[in-house]
Design a protein around this nucleic acid. Structure first.
Lengths: 100, 100
DNA sequence: CGGCAATATTGCCCTATAGCTATATATGGC
DNA sequence: GCCATATATAGCTATAGGGCAATATTGCCG
């Protein structure tokens, strides 16, 4: 999941789909990539369950499926707890006390 | 940030640091990796601001700095909104209506 | 059925990076 | 100062994967 999202163009695609359904052509137009490259990214996103496809004549309309991102949210949970305890500021202070 | 977290061993390191401070040796013992490899990952984590170091004699004690993960949390925000609207179930249903 | 439009697949190159060994750089104890 | 311990850096290899052009596939329309 992290690996899938590590690709900036794929995150951009998700951003675009956040607004609404897009055809492959729409995405190609919005990205600095060749069509086959976009199709490849879409395949990865499909396999990760992050997008779903629908056929409209020759076009394929992709839409967002945010559910798998819950996994990310859950992974974050313990860290959220960690930064909630405002020890960060204290730790930053301690760091400055470690002169070179 | 996503790229940094895409590496499973690095996430494992963060998990270990979530419990508490660790020396490099501790981490090497806990991971199926050679010491230089662990040091390399720690360097990446340091540059991402996800860990901080402290010297204790020859040892370097690493601890977690969860703050940069807020960035991830913020990125998730709009998607969280998307899955909160329980359209997911509906969309899944629509998908099944697209028989091959 | 022939042709066109939209997308997917294939095959290729090329770079980024995770892993290793070998070596360098501290730091403490004798 | 010298050896041992702990970590970092350098240099190398191998592989994963992102990019493209070329081709196959799919579905519409005349």
């Amino acid at each position: 999941m992290f690996a899938v999202l590590a690709e900036p163009h794929r995150r951009r695609i998700l951003d675009l789909l956040l607004v609404g359904e897009c055809s492959v052509g729409d995405l190609v137009a919005a990205l600095p990539l060749a069509q086959p490259t976009v199709s490849k990214h879409l395949k990865v996103l499909r396999q990760a369950g992050l997008v779903a496809v629908r056929s409209d004549a020759q076009r394929r309309l992709y839409r967002l499926r945010p559910e798998p991102l819950r996994e990310l949210d859950e992974w974050l949970e313990p860290y959220r707890a960690a930064w909630a305890t405002r020890l960060d500021a204290l730790e930053a202070h301690l760091d400055t006390m470690e002169g070179p």
